[in-house]
Amino acid sequence: MLRAVPGLGGPLTAEFEVGYVGAEGSEVRTSLIDSAGVPFELVKPVRGFPSYKRQRNFPGLWWSSTTGAHVGYESWLERDHLMLLDFAPAVAGIASQPFWLFWNDEASGRRRSHAPDYFARLADGRGLVVDCRPVDRIKPRDAAAFAVTGRACELVGWEYRLVGAPELVMVRNVRWLAGYRHPRYRLPAVGAALREVFAEPAPLMDGAGAAGEPIAVLPVLFHLLWCGELACDLGVRLHEATIVTTAGAC
């Protein structure tokens, strides 16, 4: 049983429980501490992604190159952050709506629950829990749930992020590269030529032309940028003169 944790910004309720979908499709309930070893990056969502007439949010499925499967999202904001997780080289697995966190709300005396938007497994084995919400849409009740979720994550050694709107230019650049994330764009001979060309930094289109016919080379170039085998500054708009080089040389 977990008691209040000093230094975490206020009282923490006595019991955390975690609910998730088990291997056979039934709900599993366990303590927070016992859930720390669950591979949440592999679980199914604890709730669905409904679609209905006059809906104000835009749910859907994202094909993840990290997992090789579809991952759900409930809004375009969630989709953008899911895309960025898929793009991040440190992320080895992703699941949406991975678990319910249950706790006793001391202010109201009621049992509360919250399902974070994403759980990501990092390459070094650590867990990352992500909630997506624009700053201007966080109501006091939501803020309390996010704060408690952050405290719970800290107890079991997971990183917690509450994220709002991402940087626009970065998102647009990554969204373009995401169109080439599928392995079908990995052509070994073209990739080898591109890595050789960009061993020294060069403008994107100049390097594509040096590696072969641009119309055939560019999809492979964008795929290698997505995979992190080539690199450029994605904080500025991607264009024909963008300087590209092999990863780690920027």
Score class of each variant (00 low, 15 high):
A4G: 15
P6N: 09
G7W: 10
G7S: 11
A14W: 08
F16K: 03
G19C: 12
Y20C: 06
G22Y: 09
E24K: 12
S31R: 11
P39I: 06
L42N: 12
V43Y: 05
P45Q: 12
P45K: 10
F49T: 08
P50L: 10
P50F: 06
Y52H: 12
K53H: 13
K53Q: 13
Q55N: 06
Q55D: 03
G60Y: 07
L61K: 12
L61N: 11
W62R: 14
S64L: 02
T67P: 01
G68I: 05
E74M: 04
L77N: 04
E78Q: 14
R79V: 03
H81V: 14
L85N: 00
A88H: 14
A92D: 13
G93V: 03
I94T: 09
S96I: 08
Q97D: 03
L101K: 03
S108Q: 04
Y118T: 06
Y118F: 15
Y118V: 03
A120R: 04
D124E: 11
G127F: 11
L128M: 08
V129Y: 00
V130Y: 01
V130L: 15
D131S: 14
C132D: 07
P134N: 06
V135H: 06
R137P: 00
R137Y: 04
P140A: 06
R141C: 09
A145I: 00
T149H: 05
E154K: 10
V156F: 07
G157H: 07
Y160C: 08
V163I: 12
A165G: 07
P166H: 06
E167K: 12
V169N: 02
V171D: 01
R172C: 13
G179Y: 02
Y180A: 10
R184Y: 06
P188G: 08
P188D: 12
A192T: 14
A192M: 13
L194G: 01
V197Y: 02
F198T: 02
A202Y: 01
L204R: 11
M205R: 10
D206S: 11
D206G: 05
G212P: 01
G212T: 06
E213S: 09
P214A: 05
A216E: 13
V220H: 00
H223D: 07
H223T: 07
L224D: 00
L224N: 00
L224C: 02
L224Y: 01
L224H: 05
L224A: 02
C227F: 06
G228S: 09
G228D: 07
C232A: 15
D233K: 05
L234T: 04
V236Q: 12
R237L: 14
H239I: 01
T245F: 03
A247L: 05
G248C: 08
C250H: 07
